[in-house]
Amino acid sequence: MSLAGLRQGKPEHAGHGEAGEQPHEVAADIHFAAPFSKENAGMDESVPGGAYNFAYLDEETKRMIRRAILKGIAIPGYQVPFASREMPMPYGWGTGGVQVSAACLTPDDSFKVIDQGADDTTNAVSIRKFFERTAGVETTERTAEATVIQTRHRIPETPLTEGQILVYQVPIPEPLRFLEPRETETRRMHALEDYGLMHVKLYEDIARHGEIATAYAYPVKVEGRYVMDPSPIPKFDNPKMEMAAIQLFGAGREQRIYAIPPYTRVVSLDFEDHPFVAGKAPHDCALCGASDTYLDEIITDDAGSRMYVCSDTDHCATRQEAAA
């Protein structure tokens, strides 16, 4: 038995030195030369190997995501597992959408990012900046001019057209998750097209409240087969999902990608005697006067006065400009 507490004759701090330093030194050599300099991109100089590939992700990762997107397109509404990477932004803040956008963007694209319908919300600003830096793409706030639109919680009011891609950020892609937390179970339900649990839930809503008490992330059935979570968009937006553009959904933390090709049947779940209704606040926009848009509710004083304005800031501004 050796003497307790005595240090053994080992080199101090074993481990750092060659083996420890190797990763980042090598990384700088291997990464593709980026189409921007570290300086003009505002990359953090303190990060070793601070030059990244076009649209940040390495090519192998992009290929993996691209393959998942194509399978998602081939099986509309089915959640394709993908090896989501750890992005330089937190899970839950759009890492899935960012990876899908990174796999789709070309240098010719015009990229728009919205959060809650607005281009200037902090998370939208942050993601837009990320792609300005890493992909050098042109960005826009105009829905009609954008070729790729990444969104959180809204579908733009302006109808999307062929040639556009709408990328949704998805927190929980599994529509059955709140009814059954186990992945092994929900996967089986999708395989068997066993959606009884969902119908029971919706029916219980009606029994208790007289209507389906789901206001956002309202489940849909895609092309008559898969029940799908449309991400936390208000149910007001559900009817827009039958559109001319390609819709891609990315859930980074949950490692799922799914898709809706253009002109695909997307039906909000309902019952014959309780049909789906796409609701909104019963007001007009106080800025542009629109009566057919989804509204933000703004509290304007401490007496509880309220006003309602378009959540889609580009749509609202365009209407105001046209009226001026």
Binding site: F32, F54, E59, K62, R66, I69, L70, C104, T106
Partner: peptide, 19 residues
């Protein structure tokens, strides 16, 4: 130019598969 050409090619394949 791998990243750029692959991105354009993927978009063509995506459009073709989606339509």
């Amino acid at each position: 130019d791998v990243p750029v050409e692959a991105s354009r090619a993927f978009r063509a394949v995506l459009e073709a598969m989606a339509r």
